[in-house]
Simulated scan of single mutants.
Amino acid sequence: MSKPAEPVGGISFLNNPKVRAIVFQVLALACVFFVAAYFTNNMFDNIEARGIETGFTFLDQIAGFGISQTLVEYDDGSSTYARVFLIGILNTLLVSAIAIFFTTILGLLIGIGRLSGNFLIAKLSMIYIEVFRNIPILLQILFWYNVVLAALPSPRQSYSYFDEFFLNNRGFLMPKPIFEDNSGYILAAFILACVGVFFLARWAIKRHDDTGEEFPIFSVGGAIIILSPILVFFIAGQPISSEVPELKGFNFRGGWVIIPELLALAFALSIYTATYIAEAVRAGIESVPKGQKEAAHSLGLKDHVILRKIILPQALRVIIPPVINQYLNLVKNSSLATAIGYPEIVTLFSGTTLNQVGQAIEIILMTMAVYLAFSIVISLLLNWLNAKMQIKGR
């Protein structure tokens, strides 16, 4: 009886599923690189044919335009486009950090209120979510800026609070701290207090695990963080003074000014994104079995203790993943600031700088890289936190 013919070496090689998978992936990757190289080469050929300048030498040129808000020193007569790029990044970070802070607090409160046994609180929370979630964020930004803030009085008729804080259509003005000699000791005291509270919290957790006794870490830790810098402030001879805004002519001089564009953008981003975080909080709390709460009640625990010690720690495993997406959306939605002229990265760099320089490829790629870097950092931090919160399997 004759034996069946053995497969040719090449055919036998391709019959291996792992080998075929690798071959197909290599071919697909080669096609992607070929297409990308073709379009890139075609793009630069067209740029060269039109005589358009390329490269990043424009970053060393003088910008020559004013910026309404800068966190670092800037002079429109001597500062370069590189400094404009830095200011845009810092302003984007500022509004994103403010909005993330307030949207987290507001979303947590509204999400808990949504499940409240109080009929009025639950319904008001539901109305808040349904109203602000279904209005486009751009319209909300325009509303707060063009309707609410524009209706504020002029500087001469400003709303005054404690004769040091003022609110008008030019923004919110507050005293500016002036740091003198020995003021560094206050910062050192604050840092040491935070480090001390960290180790105190670890001791409190270990003590609770060993004995079951609670330690008021929030009240004690808060007191340490607040009182330590205050005590050093007086011991060091009060080295921090303040510059209070003063009305001179038709506007205020001195102090810190939060421009209306920042107020409108941060407020709109906060109340809009908080609706989605509130729903994530509600879903996380409802995912915890009711038996957990009933068992805690049977032990005589109060509702706020049950929420803080039992419900939220378990709910966070469900809450964190969707919250990551909302933080990323918030950062990207900050680019809508261009509609009201807030000087963030899109307005300053992809707007004014692009109009003056004309190098669209470099400017757009740099702006995209900024948002990509922000998103990656946020994702890494929250994914790390999410991994820490997960229940470890065997």
Rank of each mutant, 00 (worst) to 15 (best):
L108A: 15
L108C: 13
I110P: 09
R114N: 09
L115P: 07
S116I: 00
N118P: 03
N118Y: 01
N118K: 05
F119W: 11
F119K: 15
L120S: 08
L124V: 13
S125P: 03
M126F: 12
M126L: 14
E130C: 03
N134S: 09
I135R: 09
P136Y: 13
F143K: 02
F143M: 01
W144K: 01
V148P: 03
A151S: 15
L152E: 08
P153M: 03
S154C: 00
Q157V: 03
Y159W: 13
L167W: 07
R170A: 11
R170M: 09
G171Q: 01
M174R: 04
P175K: 04
P177Y: 13
I178P: 07
E180Q: 15
D181P: 07
N182G: 10
S183L: 13
L187Y: 15
A189N: 12
A189Q: 12
F190Y: 13
I191Q: 03
I191R: 00
L192S: 05
A193Q: 01
C194H: 05
C194T: 10
G196M: 06
G196T: 02
F198T: 09
L200D: 04
I205A: 09
H208Y: 15
D209T: 13
D210F: 14
F215H: 10
P216C: 10
P216D: 05
I217C: 02
I217Q: 04
I217M: 09
F218C: 06
S219R: 08
V220E: 01
I225H: 00
I225V: 11
I225R: 00
I226A: 04
I226M: 08
I226P: 03
P229D: 03
V232D: 08
F233H: 10
